[in-house]
Design a binder for these strands. Structure first.
Lengths: 236, 236
DNA sequence: AAGTGGTCTAGACCACGCA
DNA sequence: GCGTGGTCTAGACCACTTG
């Protein structure tokens, strides 16, 4: 069963996506909504808060909640989305190749990143993402081994996130992400179709579990022409 | 006067930044905080919500709120931050040159972007940002003229945002941002120190006012080595 | 079982936009 | 002045973690 405010959120966001709530128009007032959904105003406000954060509406004091235009969709690297969720949307145009899966003794830099203690080992995973028959993304993952001892190729082929959350019962909760542009390494050139490209977009990801321990460090290396990042930002 | 929950937010975030609330430790419970701040629990929860969104804490049901490590700071292109706010942090290492300010009759593409009606004109502004004596960012702005009739070079030199909000009383409320990597144009090469660079990072920005009208379209074109984008993402 | 955060309520008052 | 959203309250019950 879903929360009440989540159901209200789903209901309204669906209406906006269908167009039965037109962009530019005003939502019913919070008091009206509280009546029609048979709930209190604070619960309505919780739903509207999320709608606003997700770019569905914009609230103006004294006026009301304006429905925004949500036609534009995009490559949603924003938030925490795994490649598997992404490739679902792309249908059969996307493929994953697991090129490497090995246990390593991490060097100092990586120990620093993963906050490893002496003797801890890590998994190093190389995966290449193919879109429309072109190898355009190279994902390089480092995971603390003791947290995921039973990792294997089939899991990497599918979704590490899924395995960790559903099989191991760990909760991935937040991540710090950093986007930079770098010069391709020999490794990049060997894995990707980089023909004439002189740069590569690097998305570094620090993934944390619910107990705030660092779980994974990932570099997702994208061919620049296939990279796109979209964000919705609010003032203050 | 500030809101109660904002004061609580400030108070706690300051304590975290100072280190008097250590990373890894637990915050007092919401009931305790409600007592010490002489307020209701919901108000405390509002403050904690923002602390969590801003990456200061992480909440776990049944356990408490864990203080996160916030030492790592970064080039905050995330959110809506103007170059002026940014350059404050950089001290005298940053400079702005206004290279162009003219009224134009927009072509079809731009009319589309700015949703201009027939006969509307726009401002086209070119600004080059210099950091440590190197010209590394080229900002190309298009603004609906009728919204900002009195624009001049001094304003562009300072901060267009500031002028629009403080002098004109308009409220900039949200933006859609898109990051891609492109091949430099002749224009880019003439404005920036691009020596051997083959790519340029383009941040396209659609800035909206409080009444949801599109106010400005901006392309911020960065030399790839000087570009960095940092984000804090939460699952779901 | 006790304590934590998560949800929900019904009501109050305030700040703002608009006619 | 009325209706809007913004803040705040005091209390209730639920879901979860930990001893």
């Amino acid at each position: 069963m879903m929360n009440k405010f989540m159901k209200i959120y789903e209901d309204i966001s669906n209406q906006i996506q269908e167009g039965s709530l037109a962009a530019g128009s005003l939502l019913p007032s919070e008091n009206d909504l509280a009546d029609t959904f048979q709930t209190s105003r604070e619960t309505i406000r919780k739903a509207l808060k999320i709608l606003s954060e997700d770019g569905y509406i914009h609230k103006v004091q004294g006026k009301g909640s304006i429905v925004l235009d949500v036609k534009k969709f995009a490559f949603p690297i924003s938030g925490l989305v795994s490649f598997k969720e992404l490739s679902k949307k792309m249908g059969h145009r996307a493929k994953t190749h697991v090129e490497m899966l090995q246990e390593i003794f991490p060097d100092e830099g990586l120990k620093e990143h993963l906050k490893l203690s002496r003797d801890d080992t890590a998994w190093e995973i190389h995966r290449v993402r193919e879109i429309d028959k072109e190898r355009v993304i190279f994902d390089k993952d480092f995971i603390v081994k003791k947290m995921v001892p039973g990792l294997n190729k089939a899991i990497c082929q599918n979704s590490i996130y899924e395995y960790v959350e559903e099989e191991l019962g760990l909760t991935i909760s937040f991540a710090k992400k950093e986007i930079t542009v770098e010069t391709p390494t020999e490794e990049d050139r060997s894995y990707l179709d980089l023909e004439g490209f002189h740069n590569i977009v690097v998305v570094k990801n620090f993934v944390y579990l619910d107990d705030t321990s660092l779980f994974q460090y990932t570099e997702s290396r994208h061919r620049p022409d296939k990279f796109r990042f979209v964000d919705f930002a609010r003032r203050k």
